[in-house]
Amino acid sequence: MAFNNQNNDASTSPTGSMSMSDNMYNSHHSQLLSSSISSLSSPTTAARQSSSHISKTYRQSSQLFLTRRMPEALSTILPLVTPPTPGLGESAETVAENEPAPVAQASRSTRIKVWSLYLTILNGILELEPDEGKDSFGTQEYRALCHKVREGDIWEEVVRNGYHGIEGNVDADVVINL
């Protein structure tokens, strides 16, 4: 079988090599393609970094919980289960409606682990002796945490911050822990 070595492309010279303008054209397209590929992979990289941050924070909080350092465990996990702080001119309700807590973007298994740990920490705080709780958190904060758990306000917080306000989307394993 014979191959036709003739190239009908006007951009190549008779010797088959490309002209300088063709090389610049291809170089430009190569750079565009490269930047497009990197921009497409950026969300994946950001998601991986976010997932890694959530996992590290979860592990740190669980270690603090296991060593009975309740205030530190709670303050470590709170940024994962609360929406970002409002900016200038935004109310906390507006931010909560528009942007969920970071855990809402996590995988299902990570989301369940984080919410379960948060609920377990709150339960551990509730089970502290009143004097120990007041010493650890301060009287007002300890009472507010106990009230939130006992009155069921925690359910609203989970639904709002982690599941875009849709009760039916709450993972069954999280519901069981409530």
Rank of each mutant, 00 (worst) to 15 (best):
Leu128Arg: 07
Leu32Ala: 13
Gly124Asn: 07
Pro79Cys: 00
Pro102Cys: 03
Ala47Cys: 08
Leu122Asn: 07
Leu66Cys: 10
Pro130Arg: 09
Ser109Asp: 15
Pro43Glu: 08
Ser52Asn: 15
Ser107Phe: 00
Gly124Ile: 02
Tyr58Trp: 10
Ser107Arg: 08
Ala101Ser: 09
Gln49Met: 13
Phe65Asn: 02
Leu88Lys: 10
Leu119Thr: 09
Leu126Cys: 10
Leu64Thr: 05
Gln63Val: 08
Val95Phe: 00
Leu88Cys: 06
Ile121Cys: 00
Leu78His: 07
Ser36Asn: 12
Ser91Asp: 05
Glu93Gln: 15
Pro86Ala: 04
Ile54Gln: 05
Glu90Arg: 07
Leu78Gly: 04
Leu88Asn: 11
Leu40Asn: 15
Thr94Leu: 10
Leu74Gln: 06
Thr94Cys: 04
Arg68Pro: 06
Leu117Arg: 03
Ile125Met: 02
Leu80Glu: 04
Leu78Cys: 06
His29Arg: 14
Thr110Gln: 13
Thr110Arg: 05
Gln31Phe: 13
Ser109Gln: 12
Leu128Asn: 02
Ser109Asn: 13
Gln105Phe: 13
Lys113Thr: 09
Ser51Tyr: 08
Ser34Met: 10
Asn123Tyr: 13
Ser91Val: 03
Arg59Leu: 12
Pro86Cys: 00
Ile125Leu: 01
Ala92His: 07
Ser38Leu: 14
Pro71Met: 06
Ser62Lys: 11
Leu122Tyr: 04
Ala47Ile: 06
Val114Lys: 00
Pro71Asp: 03
Phe65His: 03
Ser38His: 11
Asn123Arg: 15
Ser107Lys: 09
Leu128Thr: 05
Leu32Tyr: 06
Pro71Ala: 11
Tyr58Thr: 05
Pro100Ile: 09
Ser75Val: 07
Tyr118Arg: 07
Gln105Asn: 14
His53Gly: 08
Pro79Asp: 02
Asn98Gly: 08
Thr57His: 05
Glu99Tyr: 05
Ser41Ala: 10
Arg111His: 04
Pro100Met: 06
Glu129Trp: 04
Ala46Val: 09
Gly87Tyr: 03
Gly89Thr: 06
Gly89Asp: 02
Gly89Cys: 04
Leu32Met: 12
Ile54Ala: 07
Ser62Ile: 14
Glu72Gln: 15
Met70Ile: 07
Glu72Lys: 10
Ser35Met: 14
Tyr58Val: 02
Gln49Asn: 15
Pro100Leu: 01
Tyr58Phe: 15
Val95Lys: 00
Ser36Trp: 08
Ser75Asp: 14
Glu93Tyr: 01
Val103His: 00
Thr94Gly: 06
Arg48Ile: 14
Thr45Asn: 08
Val103Thr: 08
Phe65Val: 03
Ser35Thr: 12
Leu33Thr: 14
Glu72Pro: 00
Glu129Phe: 03
Glu127Tyr: 05
Leu117Glu: 02
Ser41Gln: 12
Ser109Thr: 12
Arg59Trp: 06
Ala46Ile: 06
Leu122Ser: 07
Thr120Lys: 13
Thr120Phe: 05
Glu99Gly: 01
Val81Asn: 01
Arg108Met: 11
Ile77Gln: 02
Ser61Arg: 02
Gln63Asn: 11
Val81Asp: 01
Thr76Leu: 04
Ser39Thr: 14
Thr57Asp: 06
Ser38Glu: 13
Ser107Glu: 13
Leu40Gln: 13
